[in-house]
């Protein structure tokens, strides 16, 4: 203990919908040191947001944590009471949501919304909180903070609103910032601004970041570690170079192959991953990716593969890797 800021062990979480149980997370484990940037990539419904939200105690009804331990900075999140969580959420850990258009309250001014966080978590007076809010707006690169504090969200552009969201998230200098698709709703040139700002702030404040995204380009430039999720499982985990240059899981390989690149010289046909994403209500037995996998074997359709590790960090869940390792082991004997 103590070595990791975030240490999630074998988390299992399900949503009990009227149509049946949706196993949103199956044996998800995540570790993160202070100041590290972890990227979680995956398609919609793969469980990337749920993982991060549960760490903040934000599992929405009808979701239920079924097992596992969630350690964060000395706390055990799943054992905390709602009152304790409320104190720690927004203070030690905070979040930026995907859509800056809807995550700010339209009937309160920007100033109101920033000072609310500050006054909730510290014993600053109204005046001090306002000063702090001004500092924060300057920190995230918003000019004329005095004027902005009096404005309402609809008076600001999308990029500006996302900056305000970041300011709110940083109000108490959290140890961990969760960014849930922070730039998906923004244009590319604004996205570049926001990503740059986040990296600057990370260096300045030394916080850790969990970056949730479906854009491999964003993780390539920002993250040190990457977790690839599929159907509620981390099917591959490794350093950024492991994932991009030595991917071991067929899904990761397919994902990297299928992105159109800007630097191709001739027209190459894209290599898509065939099939459709898993139906989480009726997931296949065995490996969830097997129905879409070109290299699937018989066992893939029946049993979930165990974890295969490569070196200290890199691991996958795939029978192919397991088979290769066993063959390697056999030839050594």
């Amino acid at each position: 203990m103590g070595e990791y800021l975030v240490d999630v062990k074998n988390e299992r979480l399900s949503f009990f919908t009227p149509a049946g149980e949706v196993k949103a997370l199956n044996d998800v484990s995540i570790r993160l040191k202070e100041g590290e940037v972890l990227g979680i990539v995956g398609e919609s419904g793969s469980g990337k947001s749920v993982t991060a939200y549960s760490l903040m105690g934000l599992t929405a009804h009808p979701g239920k944590l079924l097992g596992g331990e969630l350690h964060f900075n000395g706390h055990q999140v799943e054992k905390m009471t709602e009152k304790e969580i409320r104190k720690f959420r927004g203070n030690e850990i905070s979040i930026i949501f995907q859509d800056p258009m809807t995550s700010l309250n339209p009937v309160y001014t920007i100033g109101n919304q920033i000072t609310e966080v500050i006054r909730l978590h510290t014993d600053k007076t109204k005046q001090q909180a306002r000063e702090r809010a001004k500092e924060l707006l300057e920190l995230v690169g918003i000019n004329e903070p005095d004027k902005r504090l009096k404005q309402y969200p609809h008076e600001l552009s999308g990029g500006m609103r996302q900056r305000v969201m970041i300011a709110i998230a940083l109000a108490c200098e959290p140890k961990l910032l969760i960014a849930d698709e922070p730039t998906t709703a923004l244009d590319v040139t604004i996205q570049a601004q926001i990503l740059e700002l986040m990296m600057e702030l990370k260096d300045k404040l030394g916080m850790a970041i969990i970056m949730i995204t479906h854009d491999l380009g964003v993780v390539a430039s920002m993250c040190e570690r990457i977790a690839v999720m599929y159907a509620g499982r981390i099917i591959e985990y490794g350093t950024t170079d492991d994932i991009f240059y030595h991917p071991k899981h067929e899904y990761t390989k397919g994902l990297i192959r299928s992105i159109p690149r800007l630097d191709t010289k001739e027209h190459e046909r894209l290599v898509p991953i065939e099939g459709t994403p898993v139906d989480m209500l009726n997931p296949p037995a065995g490996c969830p990716f097997a129905p879409r996998c070109d290299a699937a074997m018989h066992i893939c359709l029946r049993e979930m593969p165990p974890v295969t590790t490569f070196g200290d960090v890199h691991y996958t869940q795939c029978w192919l890797n397991q088979k290769e390792e066993m063959e390697k082991g056999a030839s050594h004997e």
């Binding site: 996205q191 491999l216 380009g217 390539a220 950024t240 170079d241 991009f244 992105i259 800007l262």
Partner: peptide
């Protein structure tokens, strides 16, 4: 600037 703003899905190039 539009071209340079696109995140490159290649860590070394990025």
């Amino acid at each position: 600037s539009l071209i340079s703003a696109i995140p490159i899905a290649d860590p070394k190039q990025a």
